[in-house]
Design a protein around this nucleic acid. Structure first.
Lengths: 233, 233
DNA sequence: GCAAAAGTGTTTGGTCTACACCCATGA
DNA sequence: TCATGGGTGTAGACCAAACACTTTTGC
């Protein structure tokens, strides 16, 4: 059941002396070999805008409930990995009023939502080709911030597990890194590094979709964890 | 001028369908050779409690104004380094209502506030000796989270500059690391590491307060910046 | 048989770690 | 002259980077 919409009190009223709280979500996926962001489409005076999914948060409902609710209402996605990103609260960020946005970013495997989403209301934007002028408010800034965090997390956690299918080829794992960081890695060094972290498990299955079959791997631990600590001294 | 208190509308009313937003601050300092947290003292039914400084945020005022205001009202401190930590929003975290707390942590040099603070209202707690049962709500959790973030930031930024005086001995810098991380470092290796980062500048001044005079250093760049990048591959 | 992606080691340079003694000064 | 903290170098282990050819399969 979704949280009922509640209109008892006009939250935009000037009488109200506290800011309004919203929850906004940057949803990343890898689609067509690129890092993409899933956004809501909004038509306004026959101009089309994009907006990251978000909503005014409901009182007394906890984060999980608010989050799942927003996600389902806006994108029909039911489950994703999520992490709190930052809380943006410039009084001028939303022209309707003083809206403080607690922002999250989320990762999904593209297969898990392509069949469920209503593409008349939702769009997939390539991160590298985002047109800032078509995004609401400060959403371009939020997306940029989320991308930085994601890139950073790739380096010292197993977060890639959240955007890959259960079993994957080594080359797919390497692509995730290359797509998100925009760098190229050497195949041999990449493998050595990943193996040395001890986070992967061979499966004895093969992927036969390409010419020479490839070994499939899976993460030992799918939940996110820190995999590399560089102590200061 | 402080933000005027505004009582026009009862924000605790059940009529209000949105959560209340608060700003809470974990203030760290190094005092008496230990990592300490500056807290507000609260007497309630002749039991003394501690609380991290915080306040309901005022609408239409931006973060800087809200932050400085809260800090000055509660601790008489006028300027600190600050960084957003996390937004806590469990509906049950505050018994008075659904309060979402945007938390910051801040670093101060102890000399900068000792003479200004009213110690009947504020206290300095040693981090290692904090009694969780004497802290309000989830404040112990917030402090713990802030400590983790601080430790983490020490490793890859010049954040230590924020807690040290302008000019300092190498041994003082090493103490900051040892106090915050709880580890011991080798003097020679510590120096080599710090020098290799290229963030310090020798001054030609000496500290003569100890037996053998010590060279004083300063950070080339006092503003916080990332000083170490460990690329994934 | 050829195109396409998978698989596989070695060398070199740099960084991290462990470790111990002398120095300059004030008391 | 002695107690205190300041200052300094080297050797071995480990890790990161650069680099190219062979293998397996489908077409």
């Amino acid at each position: 059941m979704l949280i009922p919409e509640n209109k008892q009190f006009d939250i935009w009223s000037d009488e109200l002396t506290i800011p309004i709280l919203a929850l906004d979500i940057v949803i990343f996926t890898i689609y067509m070999g690129e890092l993409c962001v899933i956004v809501s489409k909004v038509e306004e005076n026959s101009i089309s805008w994009y907006s990251i999914p978000g909503w005014i948060v409901a009182k007394w409902f906890d984060l999980e409930k608010n989050f799942d609710d927003i996600l389902k209402r806006k994108t029909w996605i039911e489950w994703v990995y999520k992490e709190q990103l930052y809380t943006f609260w410039d009084p001028k960020r939303d022209p309707r009023g003083h809206v403080v946005a607690v922002c999250y970013y989320a990762l999904v495997q593209v297969d898990s939502f392509l069949t469920k989403v209503d593409f008349t209301k939702v769009d997939i934007l390539k991160y590298s080709q985002i047109d800032k002028t078509k995004l609401f408010y400060d959403h371009a800034k939020i997306i940029h911030y989320a991308k930085q965090r994601l890139e950073w997390k790739l380096e010292y956690t197993n977060i890639a597990a959240q955007i890959l299918p259960e079993k994957f080829k080594m080359s797919q794992l390497q692509w995730v890194y290359e797509i998100i960081t925009g760098k190229k890695y050497d195949k041999r060094n990449f493998q050595k590094k990943v193996f040395s972290l001890g986070i992967l498990q061979e499966t004895w299955e093969l992927d036969k979709s390409t010419n020479r079959p490839a070994k499939l791997y899976q993460f030992l631990e799918k939940d996110i964890q820190i995999v590399e600590k560089n102590s200061f001294v």
